[in-house]
Simulated scan of single mutants.
Amino acid sequence: MSNLNQGNRQFAVIGLGRFGRAVCGSLHKMGYEVLGTDIDEKLVAQVLTDRIASHAVQLDSTEPTALKEAGIFEFDTVIIAIGNFLQESIITTLNVKEAGVAHVVAKASSEIHGKLLERVGADRVVFPEYEAGCALAHTLTKPAILDRFDLDPDNSIVEVLVPEEFHGKTIAELQLRNRYGLNILAVGEGEKFEINPLPNLKLHKGTAMVVIGSNKDLQRLPI
């Protein structure tokens, strides 16, 4: 594998369905070297045609020998995106972890599936459908939320439009920490943000602010 500009990190994605393709494409766009694999030769060919991975090979990931021959065990991070085939997903995760891959991320399709993946060594389990559903629910109920990053199940960082109620007031006047239990990390417009804004900074409707706090407190924002 050739050297990378961004920390020489290399990723292998096993399973080239919608989730696997999205991961491949995003990592490839960011300039990382990505190897995509799937047991379905058509999905492998499509990834190569669409140029969303550096390399792509057809293999059966339940066979340790096939994984070894493809060089999967040499990668820093392996993403197992075989969410809907429980047995194949678990066997693949076990194969990759037993071979010594440092960081294994596995997609789960249910809570039980997730627990089994953790039991066989997955370093991180993701539930894309659940996470997408939660994000949609937040967007529908709080349309002024521009972006959201969940720190854990109870706390988040959100980028929100400054509500009309806050217009023309300084951060000190709003007393967000006392009134809402929240802290403002940044205030800005478009691509430009002021990090750790001063208490005397006035907020204006239509601009954005990045706030950290518990989900319960964030729900209380007048947006």
Rank of each mutant, 00 (worst) to 15 (best):
A45S: 13
A108M: 06
K68Y: 10
A102C: 07
L116V: 15
V125C: 08
H167T: 06
I195T: 13
N5E: 14
A122N: 10
G17I: 05
I157Q: 03
I82A: 03
I112T: 13
E131D: 13
M1Y: 02
I212Y: 09
G7Y: 07
F193N: 06
D217I: 00
Q58H: 01
R220L: 11
L176M: 14
F85P: 01
L136Y: 05
A137R: 13
V125Y: 03
C24Y: 04
G133M: 03
V158D: 00
R9K: 15
A122I: 08
Y130V: 15
G213H: 00
V125W: 03
V34D: 05
P163R: 12
R148T: 13
L201V: 14
S26A: 13
L86Y: 10
M30I: 01
D60P: 02
L140Q: 09
E194G: 00
S61M: 12
A172I: 01
C134E: 12
G133T: 06
I72S: 00
T207Q: 13
F73L: 12
M30E: 12
V120D: 10
S26D: 11
V160K: 05
E173G: 12
M209R: 04
G181K: 08
L161K: 15
G121M: 08
N84A: 11
V104M: 10
E165M: 09
L146C: 12
H55Y: 06
A102F: 06
A81R: 05
G7T: 08
T77N: 07
G168N: 08
E189Y: 10
E33M: 11
A99T: 13
D60V: 03
H138L: 14
Q87N: 11
G20L: 03
L117E: 09
F75P: 01
N95Y: 05
E191L: 04
G20Q: 05
S89L: 05
L4V: 09
G71V: 06
E173R: 07
H204A: 08
T139A: 14
P128D: 05
F73G: 02
A12H: 03
N95S: 07
N3S: 11
G20Y: 00
E159M: 09
D217F: 00
I82T: 05
I223L: 15
S2Q: 09
I184M: 09
V23G: 01
E69G: 00
G36E: 02
G190M: 12
T37K: 00
R51D: 15
S214N: 12
A102S: 13
N3W: 09
Q10L: 03
V13E: 02
F75T: 01
I145R: 09
I90A: 05
K216G: 01
L117V: 07
